[in-house]
Design a binder for these strands. Structure first.
Lengths: 154, 154
DNA sequence: TTGATTTAGTGGTATATGCCACTTTTGTGA
DNA sequence: TCACAAAAGTGGCATATACCACTAAATCAA
């Protein structure tokens, strides 16, 4: 090797993933900024919208997100009147989520900005490259890293 | 090409990136758990270690992380005695960072676990696929999404 | 030398996310 | 039916991460 990696950083799958996520997240956030929403919030609103009054657990599962994390993330959106929740009549443990009319309007607004961000991203990265990236990410998101606890003695 | 949204979610580069990061982050965190460190902290310790008493700004830049975010992230590591900072004698604005002896020991410990996580990841994903993923992530991390304020129509 | 500007960090505030303990509902088996 | 286990969320706490306003130090300009 003629060059030494400035840091072994590029060797860690997790670190690279995080770094790229920060980078892209900042970019999408930037573009969505005029809406007052973060990219995470836009994604969440969208997810709720396409779901059929999804239960919290269902949303968390599809986003591979901790249920409690979802609850926390939802709070600002509820506070701002974009989202509301209600107990499933058939099972009171289940809490379902839906957009408010105001939330629908906001989603519409932010999706326009999202399209801009998305298009510009694909213009820079290349449509194929982007599609390929998403496919790979989807793959690894679906993987099972089930493992015997490292040094557990049982 | 305007049809039904597949999973919807799988179309957004940012959302997919985040989702995969949550997934992989949880996996690496799991494996590193016995050390008491999160994967982000392991990465940060490593970064500090391989750098030559790097300045905060240098670390932030190489991790594509906000400087203030780095400062916040560093606090638990300083509190726990793994890392210490000192002003650059040549430029007092600059704060440099280094591992303490205790931090070195801890890094050694956590890196062993990291190797386990990394190897298992590559075993599941495939070495080539993993390397390719990292390369793509490195690429997009280096991109310039310079955006002309939404002026030109599209 | 002095005042304006730039550079490097800090602190506050807010969202993003995870884990754990705990509560409420359901579902189950004796 | 009743005690117990399982399922779905909530709240608290901790870290991750960003932006903004502000401070301190170094630079530049006149």
């Amino acid at each position: 090797m003629s060059k030494e990696a400035p840091s072994g950083l590029t060797l860690c799958n997790n670190a690279m993933l995080r770094r790229a996520t920060r980078k892209i997240g900042q970019y999408y956030d930037d573009v969505l900024a005029p809406s007052g929403l973060k990219a995470t919030q836009q994604g969440l609103l969208y997810q709720i919208h396409v779901g059929n009054e999804p239960a919290m657990g269902a949303i968390a599962a599809s986003l591979i997100m901790d249920l409690s994390a979802l609850g926390h993330t939802l709070k600002p959106l509820i506070r701002d009147g974009y989202v509301e929740t209600f107990a499933d009549p058939a099972d009171r443990r289940v809490k379902r989520v839906r957009l408010t009319p105001q939330g629908l309007v906001k989603l519409d607004e932010v999706m326009k900005l999202w399209h801009v961000a998305q298009q510009r991203f694909e213009a820079v990265v290349g449509k194929d490259q982007a599609a390929n990236l998403r496919a790979v990410l989807d793959d690894i998101s679906a993987l099972d890293f089930d493992m015997p606890p490292a040094a557990s003695s049982e």
